[in-house]
């Protein structure tokens, strides 16, 4: 026992030395370490997600033929309606492309879409994120917007080999620009996550609202993406304003609380919009660039 305690002193010294070394280690090493442990966990997470899919499959297998027939009938109806819509969308898209060509306006719709299943959700008062089952192998890049239909879910923050972490709108590290309903001409506001108290629904915060803005009376005020930042396409719904638009302490501007448009814990599948060309921000943050990450830490 004495020996054990003697050794303990040495261990503490060793630990102290290690902590010192850890602080001074190059960030690349720490990044590698983190990445290694993430990759260690990834197969288990994937297995989990796939087994859940399998369970769902067997659950569906157990459905009666009657149910399946009615489901397929419903689907074909929806299909027909959508096909019709698609037709007009195609026309509009062509028209849009032509107009852009005429104006020499940069095309903003150059995204590749990757659909990904949600493996797990990890929310706390300090971070709000989901893990999705697509990663570097599928072409996911950090910073890419994550959407569900025309609703913004969040942004890819860290990409691993086969899984990626997505920061939700409500995560404090999330930020984007938006336009508010009823603001004519629209002016840019700032949206940032603020997580929220545990046991209460997470929220985002809208800041830098011009102080002469007032939301349209008696309506739910929608918050939509601007499409100007080169990350999110324009016109996606981010959320709705909750409560009043109130002046900030300095009273030069106003701010409001935003409820995300999608109940985030119900989502099983999301789409990642990967820009065709890397954005300047992405180039700036890429580790191969001479810019080092720790400058931002």
């Amino acid at each position: 026992m004495e020996k054990n305690r003697q050794g303990a002193k040495a261990s503490y010294v060793a630990l102290a030395v290690f902590i010192a070394a850890w602080v001074m280690l190059p960030s690349a090493f720490r990044r590698f370490n983190r990445e290694a442990f993430a990759e260690f966990q990834a197969p288990a997470l994937q297995l989990l997600s796939k087994s859940r899919d399998l369970a769902r499959y067997w659950e569906l297998r157990s459905r009666s033929d009657e149910e399946l027939i009615s489901a397929s009938r419903d689907l074909s109806r929806i299909n027909a309606a959508l096909e019709l819509k698609l037709q007009s969308t195609d026309d509009i898209r062509r028209e849009n492309a032509r107009l852009r060509e005429m104006l020499r306006y940069p095309s903003s719709s150059e995204y590749l879409t990757v659909v990904a299943r949600v493996i797990s959700r990890d929310t706390s008062s300090w971070w709000q994120r989901i893990i999705i089952r697509k990663g570097r192998n599928d072409g996911i890049r950090p910073g890419a917007p994550v959407v569900f239909g025309n609703h913004v879910i969040g942004r890819v923050s860290i990409v691993h080999q086969n899984v990626s972490e997505v920061d939700l709108i409500t995560s404090p590290s999330f930020r984007c620009t938006a336009f508010l309903d009823g603001d004519v001409p629209p002016r840019i506001v700032h949206v940032g996550g603020m997580a929220g108290n545990s046991l209460s629904a997470p929220r985002a915060k809208i800041t830098v609202i011009p102080n002469d803005y007032s939301p349209p009376a008696g309506e739910v005020t929608k918050v939509v993406t601007t499409g100007l930042g080169g990350v999110f396409p324009a016109g996606l719904i981010i959320g709705t304003i909750e409560g009043d638009v109130l002046p900030t302490p300095e009273a030069r501007l106003k701010e409001a609380t935003m409820v995300p448009s999608k109940v985030l814990d119900r989502i099983d599948e999301v789409s990642v919009l990967i820009p065709k060309y890397p954005t300047p921000g992405e180039i700036l943050m890429s580790p191969t660039e001479f810019l080092k990450l720790e400058e931002f830490k």
């Binding site: 930020r175 700032h190 930042g229 080169g230 990350v231 954005t279 921000g281 700036l284 931002f296």
Partner: peptide
Amino acid sequence: IARFIEQFPSG
């Protein structure tokens, strides 16, 4: 503004 907010690394 939008490019700065959405692309320039925060923090």
